[in-house]
Simulated assay, not measured.
Amino acid sequence: MTNSRINMLVIDDDDINIFIIKKVIEKTGYEVDMTSKSNGQLAIDYLTSITSNVEIFPHIILVDINMPILNGWEFLEAYEKLNIVRPKVYLYMLSSSVYEYDIEKAKGFKSVNGFISKPLTIERLKELLQLVVL
Score class of each variant (00 low, 15 high):
48 T>N: 10
118 K>I: 07
82 L>M: 14
130 Q>R: 12
71 N>I: 08
110 K>W: 00
107 K>Q: 12
67 M>D: 01
93 M>G: 00
104 E>Y: 10
91 L>P: 00
21 I>D: 02
101 Y>V: 11
50 I>E: 02
28 T>W: 03
126 K>P: 04
107 K>N: 11
45 D>R: 12
100 E>Y: 05
85 V>D: 15
43 A>N: 05
12 D>K: 00
55 E>S: 15
19 F>M: 10
87 P>I: 07
39 N>G: 04
98 V>C: 01
105 K>Y: 08
129 L>M: 08
101 Y>H: 12
92 Y>F: 15
108 G>N: 12
92 Y>Q: 01
8 M>D: 05
84 I>V: 15
130 Q>H: 09
62 L>S: 01
118 K>H: 07
77 E>C: 05
1 M>W: 07
46 Y>R: 04
18 I>G: 03
22 K>R: 14
96 S>L: 03
23 K>L: 12
100 E>D: 11
89 V>D: 01
85 V>T: 15
105 K>C: 08
3 N>L: 10
114 G>V: 05
77 E>P: 02
37 K>Q: 14
76 L>I: 10
127 E>I: 13
93 M>F: 11
5 R>K: 13
117 S>C: 10
83 N>D: 15
125 L>P: 04
78 A>W: 03
72 G>T: 01
2 T>V: 11
56 I>Y: 03
84 I>M: 08
23 K>A: 11
107 K>T: 06
106 A>G: 11
87 P>N: 14
29 G>Y: 08
83 N>E: 15
96 S>T: 12
